[in-house]
Design a protein around this nucleic acid. Structure first.
Length: 552
RNA sequence: GCCCUCUUAGCUCAGCGGAAUAGAGCACCUGGCUUCGAACCAGGAAGUCGUAGGUUCGAAUCCUACAGAGGGCACCA
């Protein structure tokens, strides 16, 4: 039995009791919390429903618990129900009922843990979206790891997910990028507000090598345009390759520039105008965003006739909605949190519900640290760390795992020395090792003629077996919670616990009998448990985009 | 001045979606490989959960104030 099954059993019992008149009619929640108590004297699973609902049924938690407990005792698979403390209901599940899950896991294989909470939802997840004026830095790398993992989790919950990258290939920053390339090509120093570094020089050289014309002898405007278009393409290709090598493949790379060429920007502004949400003042066109909770109104078209950045956001959101997405999730860095309100205003101005069709996740920054001291990322000092640098230093698995295992609400310190020297303290190896170990056990078992020819749940009665089964049972719930709260790190933390629980099982229970001893039912049943653990570790690591190695 | 996030063990961080003794990894100390992988396990030491109030039968968790850290507050993109 999984905690979810117990949860729905409890809800069933509640509605039965109400139907039978054992309980007064009252609101019941859609799910109840069932968790594994730290102290095993408190049962296999425990719930706090009585303490939460007692009052609304007009009784004390303990009274409520008594009534509910007597009903739960009749549920198949529940062997004992106890009431403890202020009103906890402690559930004891018969060993057979809990262990039967093991077979389910092996049978379902890669699908174990798959949920249906997002079935039918067409979801757009936009992340990274770093400017194409340079390689992806540590911050963007974090969003790549977290965002891709989130996409995998949504997909696992049944959603139709599109991973999308908004490519800001339009506007002032790109102009600066182009001017920087031109300067580099001419062997001049970078413009005051421009970009510098080896990559700029490399791209400038490549642009010149690829062109048949002598770009530097054209009219200045044409030169800059030539470097802009070719340079952006090269940068784009490089970014896409870095992401791919990192295990992140976007479904859509959306080019901001394309909306200006197609007229989508003007169209979307007109649309807002028809709805009465724009006005003209001081020669500029404004979005009346303050009526939708923004601090102030925002300029869409500047008085010189050019578009402000928000114009692209407006057109882009409309485009996403017209492509049929029910929900558009944006992952932004903390340096963009000031945009949330105006973005939500755009959503509302189109008649949608902020927080529903549009959702914005803000993630905190990544700081660089060396030996405990903060290091400013500086191109000149050579302390800019790119996605490629990180992968080169620790590999994709360790990089993705360490970036995805903590909450995006916390800023993250990445220590260069820890990164390059002490990679073994990354918990990813602890988890991967557990997986490799299960595989080795499985291979050895088959060589010793221990096979999955029979499965007897009752044979798995050792505490460490029970703990492992209970841990495995929580996987679907962990995935669901990670999806609901948009927190992939929960999967990582869960895997670390699962790995530990497996190692303890391994220590206490032999899958393969000592030489000379016969192969018994318990060994074959343990092999099922071992293989179920392999599966859950692999499924979980898969959600993080981390490999599950056969050996290491 | 206003807004967002953070403050938990020596370090890096979970727990924040109220519950039964606050957790993990690393580092430190002690034990365990002549039988499935010791990248492991068992045990020890280590925390007035930033401070002060409040709500609650119950607060690391919710509310308020304050302090500290980081990030934002453009007709820039």
């Amino acid at each position: 039995m999984t905690p979810e099954q117990l949860s729905s059993a409890i809800l069933n019992a509640l509605s039965q009791l109400m139907a039978e008149g054992g309980l007064a009619k009252a609101e019941i929640p859609s799910s109840v919390v069932v968790e594994r108590p730290k102290n095993r004297d408190h049962g296999d699973w425990a719930t706090n429903v009585a303490m939460q609902l007692g009052k609304s049924f007009g009784m004390t938690p303990r009274q409520f618990a008594e009534i509910l407990a007597s009903k739960l005792e009749t549920v198949e698979g529940i062997s004992k129900v106890e009431i403890a403390g202020p009103g906890f209901i402690n559930l004891f599940v018969s060993p057979g009922a809990s262990a039967s899950l093991v077979k389910t896991i092996v049978d379902q294989g890669v699908d174990f843990g798959r949920g249906d909470s997002l079935v039918g939802v067409k979801l757009n997840l936009e992340f990274v979206s770093a400017n194409p004026t340079g390689p992806i830095h540590l911050g963007g790398t974090r969003w790549a790891a977290v965002g891709d993992s989130l996409a995998r989790i949504f997909d696992f919950c049944g959603a139709d997910v599109t991973r999308e990258y908004y490519f800001n290939d339009h506007g002032g920053q790109i102009d600066r990028f182009a001017r920087s390339l031109v300067a580099a090509a001419k062997n001049e120093s970078a413009p005051e507000d421009g970009y510098s570094g080896q990559y700029i020089l490399d791209i400038a050289n490549t642009v010149m090598d690829q062109s048949e014309k002598d770009l530097l002898s054209l009219e200045p405007d044409e030169t800059q345009e030539a470097f802009r278009s070719a340079g952006v393409e090269l940068m784009f290709a490089q970014i896409r390759k870095s992401l791919h090598d990192f295990g992140v493949d976007f479904d859509v790379f959306f080019h901001e520039h394309s909306m200006y060429e197609s007229g989508a920007v003007e169209k979307s502004i007109l649309r807002l105008g028809e709805k009465g949400h724009t006005f003209v003042e001081d020669g500029a066109t404004w979005l009346r965003s303050s009526t939708f909770g923004d601090d102030r109104d925002r300029v869409i078209v500047k008085s010189d006739g050019s578009n402000a950045y928000i114009a692209g956001d407006i057109a882009y959101y409309l485009d996403k909605r017209e492509r049929g997405f029910d929900q558009c999730i944006y992952m932004l860095g903390a340096d963009h949190h000031g945009y949330v309100q105006r973005m939500m205003a755009i959503c509302a101005a189109f008649g949608d519900t902020p927080g529903k069709q549009m959702e914005i996740l803000i993630g905190q920054m990544v700081n660089l640290v060396r030996a405990g001291q903060p290091v400013k990322m500086s191109k000149r000092a050579g302390t800019v760390i790119t996605m490629e640098d990180l992968v080169e230093a620790v590999g994709v698995d360790a990089a993705r795992y360490s970036l995805a295992r903590s909450s995006i609400n916390s800023s993250l310190d990445v220590d260069l020395e820890v990164l390059t020297k002490k990679t073994n303290d990354n918990p990813v190896f602890y988890v991967q090792y557990a997986h490799a170990r299960t595989r080795q056990v499985s291979k050895n078992a088959s060589a010793q003629l221990v096979e999955r020819s029979e499965f007897v749940p009752e044979a798995l009665s050792h505490l460490s077996e029970q703990n492992l089964i209970a841990q495995l049972a929580q996987f679907p719930q962990v995935v669901e919670t990670a999806s609901e709260f948009r927190e992939p790190h929960r999967v990582a933390r869960y895997l670390e616990e699962l790995a530990g629980t497996y190692h303890r099982f391994y220590d206490h229970c032999r899958v393969i009998p000592l030489s000379g001893d016969p192969v018994e039912t318990v060994h074959r049943s343990r092999l099922w448990l071992n293989d179920a653990c392999t599966q859950v570790l692999a499924n979980g690591l898969g959600l993080l985009g981390v490999s599950a190695p056969e050996r290491m």
